[in-house]
């Protein structure tokens, strides 16, 4: 069970991007988080994946409250999450060949010996050929790079997957292929999924349930509407 309660988070002091948001993902459940761009859903996803410390609120992971984020979180907690980001170009170290990119978490956690087998297995699952594995990020397409990023997210067999607009940059067939890889992995391991996106059709078909952003965060939504209305009045005047 992954539980976020009353999360307020942002990047500058006293200017929260997310206000008082709450969200629960049951073990093995897949939840789609749907919202317009810029609403703060990625920030909430980063809080959930222990990558961004919230200013207020609690995150509970399998009944245990999370006490630290990023490096302050114990390694087992951090690696319990596999994260896939929106832009594969930005989320891949440009100097690593795809093989090393996928194997990096195994090497970082002292499990170097498992790397060759695990990479081969995941490359087959994500549809990456042996030739592609020897290339660097700038020598492959966005779709191919995102396949490698998904493989990297799965390499440590996480109990939770956080996919932040994983398919926003991709064409329909690659989207279908990547969603299928995620679902195969979840069927095999029973991992939970938080999929963030702005496409209701995709999320409704992909996930057990889809949560609208305003359900996650009543307060801010109302304020945003007020702000927009105020600025519209201003413009009309």
């Amino acid at each position: 069970m992954l539980e976020l309660r009353g999360i307020t988070a942002g990047y500058e002091p006293r200017r929260p991007v997310v206000r008082d948001a709450s969200l629960t993902v049951a073990a093995g459940e897949s939840v789609g988080l749907l919202g317009p761009s810029g609403c703060g859903k990625s920030t909430l996803a980063r809080v959930a994946a222990l990558l961004h410390r919230p200013d207020a609120g609690t995150v509970t992971l399998d009944g245990e409250p999370v006490r630290g984020w990023r490096h302050r979180a114990p390694r087992e907690q951090r690696t319990a999450f596999g994260v896939v980001f929106q832009q594969p170009r930005m989320s891949a170290d440009p100097r690593l060949r795809l093989h090393d990119l996928i194997a990096e978490p195994l090497r970082a956690t002292g499990r170097r010996a498992e790397a060759p087998d695990r990479v081969r297995e995941l490359a087959a699952a994500t549809g990456l050929t042996a030739d592609l594995l020897t290339r660097r990020p700038h020598e492959v397409s966005d779709g191919q790079l995102q396949r490698a990023c998904l493989a990297r997210a799965l390499v440590l067999r996480p109990r939770w997957l956080v996919c932040d607009e994983m398919t926003a940059m991709l064409d329909a067939s690659t989207t279908a292929a990547l969603v299928a890889v995620v679902e195969d992995y979840r069927r095999e391991t029973g991992a939970g999924l938080l999929a963030v996106g702005h496409d209701p059709v995709l999320l409704d078909r992909w996930c057990d349930r889809t949560v609208r952003w305003r359900e996650v965060q009543e307060v801010q939504e109302a304020q945003q509407v007020q702000q927009v209305q105020a600025s519209q009045k201003e413009a009309l005047r």
């Binding site: 690696t79 930005m90 990096e104 978490p105 970082a108 997210a153 440590l156």
Partner: peptide, 22 residues
């Protein structure tokens, strides 16, 4: 601040490893 550092944190890399390798 690039997402690949986030990915490395999530992949269990230590601060030192991120600094030296990435």
């Amino acid at each position: 601040s690039r997402p690949f550092v986030d990915a490395a944190v999530s992949g269990g890399s230590s601060r030192l490893r991120i600094a030296v390798r990435h």
